[in-house]
Write a protein that binds this DNA or RNA. Sequence first.
RNA 1: UCCCUGGUAGCUCAGCUGGUUAGAGCACAUGACUGUUAAUCAUGGGGUCGCUGGUUCAAGUCCAGCCCGGGGAGCCA
Length: 485
Amino acid sequence: MEPTPIKSVLDDTALTGTTLTVAGWVRTFRNDRFIALNDGSTIRNLQCVIDQGKVDAAARARFTTSAAVKCTGLIVESKGSGQRVEMQVTAVEVLGDSDGEKYPIQPKKHSLEFLRENAHLRFRTNTYSAIFRIRHQVSFGIHEYFDSLGYNYFHSPIITASDAEGAGEMFRVSTLDAKNPPLNEDGSVNWKEDFFGAESRLTVSGQLQAELSALALGKVYTFGPTFRAENSNTARHLAEFWMIEPEAAFMDLAGDMDLAEGLCKHLIARVLKNSMDDLQFLDARLKEEEAQKPKEQRSELGLIDRLKFVLDNPFERITYTDAIEILLRSKPHQKKQFQFPVEWGIDLQSEHERYLVEKHFKKPVIVTGYPGKIKAFYMRTNGPGDFGYSDKGTTVAAMDVLFPGIGEIIGGSQREERLDVLEARMKDMGVDEKELWWYLDTRRFGTVPHAGFGLGLERFVLFVTGMGNIRDVIPFPRTPKSAEF
RNA sequence: UCCCUGGUAGCUCAGCUGGUUAGAGCACAUGACUGUUAAUCAUGGGGUCGCUGGUUCAAGUCCAGCCCGGGGAGCCA
């Protein structure tokens, strides 16, 4: 008999009174009688009650933590108080034993650091199974959102021969012998002999390719792995992460902001609708964790309340110039508590973003109109009348969406569609035009205003799950000096 | 990469100004238990004190270097 998902057994009242089979992994075995069985379909366990007259002691001794077990029996209303229904087991089979002495995950609280070191088994815990069910909901919701708006899922390449994407250090992809590469006469490596006939790398962004397709298909989005070889050792960075990059022709910056805010809210609404029991578990986990922090570091809202708050309130939209004004008038600036100086022209530091989001507005904030000098070459230069224009210096139609506790979760912009302005800006910023001839062609042939953004999937999952470390929301984290499993 | 901090049993930790056989709780094993909810009770086994070198009569404890984790910063998503 095909095993029934435990989620159905617990939720579908029509199944009460029927005999069926479930299969899963033992969480605990209590009183030599009660198996708490989890099959991953839900965070909740099914209590499987063993008849000691039918299952001998030797068989019962095999119901150890994380052993795989198949149970068949009658679903009845529970005599105990902890659950609505339970199974009266008539036949039980151990599919896979788990040596209690060697199995590292115990039925007790573990530190996340320890579980990270056992990343191959951490999915067996409530916390991680909840996280990865939610990650699925977010991933699926992304496709759902863009599909509903007529966007095409577009696959940008993972290997690229261009190093002008301008979003950070890249990993090299090569089949050359690292110890003895073919050399040019001047002693440099002869990449023409490499697999692709050119020095090639892993992508840091699919944006440029997404732009090419947006100027034909109209609306596209990419959703795939992205790589950064930055030596970043923080709870918010990964060397391999998943990024969502929509790009739409005929869309301006305001439309871009609407799209970004709409996506965030759609995803939160979906998770609230489909993952409530996982959220409740994570909410309780977070409360417990926060109870150990000093009062001033605790957040005012619990996880679920926080999600509802973001869903129900419009994101604040301010210009970079206004943000600087707010920071200059702020208490921490006047008391000289900021580590970095505040003046027009600087890039906003983490402490500044955190002040704006967590102290001043207390909700997600979209900052637009950053100085051109600190933003990428492809962003559109603002003119008088454009939102974010400033007489203090050149600004571009960039937007950063800042979330509480995480900082920048989305970075986007309206792109520079004017060939002459783009070329001048590339020259200014030292970007090689020759390498990007194909990109510039879009501006030569039927260029139109267009815009897009990049959303880091893991950062979003971090926010939705209330977790603090990005390594806990991707199944197999890749970070400097760490790529096990 | 920089600053701070840590590494002692399977896990979470204690171990004083260096001192003789390194502790606790949980987990695990064995036994008991027919209504338990991270069950409970009894008994028991379990340690290269991160690694390397140094100081010393003596190092878990002091010093140096390295490795790894955590928090913060930079870079960014």
